[in-house]
Amino acid sequence: MQRNSIRKDHQLTVRMLIIGLMLIMAYLALFGLLLISGMNPIFVFVIGIGMVLFQYFMSDKLVLKTTGAKPVTKEEQPKLHEIIERLSKIGGIPKPRTIAVMDTEAPNAFATGRSPKHATVAVTQGLLNKLNDEELEGVIGHELAHIKNRDMMVMTWASLIVVVAGFLMQMLFWMSLFGGFGGHRRQGNGGQTMAMMMVLYIGVIIIYFISQLLISTLSRYRELAADREGAIITGSPTNLASALKKISGQIAQIPEKDLRRVEHANAFFIIPALQGNTIASLMSSHPPTEMRVARLIEMQRQNWHLLR
């Protein structure tokens, strides 16, 4: 078995499990905090789940609308359809329902949809223009791997806690502005309720940031897993590696900020290391490209006898 199949990345699986456990702990902490402070956790979570369900079922339509991606037929984009159809078959998932193209020059792609049966894959015109067929296969393989791994579902449900904590944070903030904490205050007990609410507020903020951190970490792990799964589907890790290099080496680096703004922020020109610093990389949803490329090349090296 070991010999003719590509080994699972156990380290990555273990890491995802650890993050998952930490997320569960964050959920429990939030639940406990709500109980202690006398709020009904069920009520709060029902609202949160409602918000997430909305996102869950509407996501594909919403995303198409906000990105301006236009569904394309087989006649309009025969090559794109052919690649997606072939790779879906290899990956053992149904061909995504909607295949769309965004009319932007910046090379990019995404997959969405709550299940493989309701999936959408979209690429930008820039991606089609810049990449050759192999590289395009690499990117599509990665997106199909997201669908296969049900990342949309995993990430939506994982981020429930951020939705709930964020909602609570806002609610507590407005409550503190209007009529003070606690609503109808029990007599003689006002100070205590106030202190309780303060504890709740601070606790919720801490949980919010920690879970945000956990979720972006989880997202980066899912990206690495999709890189790997995608490379198994296409049979060539270097396809994606080369596409990633091509995409990120160029456009992604050009900043949108105004020269004058940076100039006022001073120091920048002397120490040009403001980007790629640790805070940003902790919060970012994708691992750095160099890391992804290095892992793909390593995968190719280890499994050269199994890959084409």
Partner: peptide, 10 residues
């Protein structure tokens, strides 16, 4: 300039 310094100007 390296790409990361190609700031915009409005």
């Amino acid at each position: 300039e390296p790409h990361e310094n190609w700031y915009s100007l409005s």
